[in-house]
């Protein structure tokens, strides 16, 4: 299997199969450009990724490798256990995305830049889960957002959104 090197913004190299790397559409298109430019030489391709740090790239590659392996197992022939494998992958994804808010932020940005659709979807779901059921204040704290409304505007928004701002505990009591 052909391997490529993905180089992070801080200069760390990661050797990975071309198949796994190509889960990233950004990497895939960069590889195509590099292939065209290398002019028949047999050297291993190095893809620089200036927007992704080593730590995040490691995490992204963990996803790519796992999903490539899983896809290979399924394409080798459908079996009655395919559904089980699918459920196992879903469970793996759930564990994988159990990271801190900071990590999740870096991961979603990397997934966006690298254009890995499955990972992007998973990260957005992870962030949505952090927001779901939380008050605006909690969301602000969680994501470091700054309340930048003018006072009258804030009051108007509060009145408009009143129906969604009912205290969760009050609802639970009902």
């Amino acid at each position: 299997m052909c391997s490529v090197i993905l180089r992070s913004s801080d200069g760390a190299d990661h050797v990975v199969s071309q198949e796994a790397a190509s889960l990233s559409k950004t990497v895939q298109s960069l590889l195509e450009e590099l292939e065209a430019a290398k002019d028949g030489e047999e050297s291993i391709l190095i893809v620089p990724l200036p927007n992704v740090c080593d730590c995040t790239l490691r995490k992204v590659l963990q996803y790519c490798i796992q999903h490539t392996m899983s896809a290979q197992q399924v394409t080798e022939g459908p079996t009655p256990s395919d559904e089980l494998k699918k459920r196992e992958m879903e469970a793996w994804d759930r564990d994988y995305i159990m990271v801190s808010t900071d990590e999740l932020y870096h991961l979603v940005m990397a997934a966006h830049y690298l254009n890995v659709p499955g990972l992007l979807e998973l990260c957005c779901e992870g962030i949505a889960n952090l927001i779901r059921g939380k008050s605006p204040e909690h969301v602000r704290q969680c994501f470091g957002l700054v309340k930048d409304f003018e006072a009258p505007e804030e009051e108007s928004i509060r009145c408009t959104n009143l129906w969604a701002l009912v205290d969760e505990k009050e609802q639970a009591k009902k």
Partner: peptide, 10 residues
Amino acid sequence: CDWVRASGTC
């Protein structure tokens, strides 16, 4: 309703 709450953050 979660979207509405989030829209009231900033």
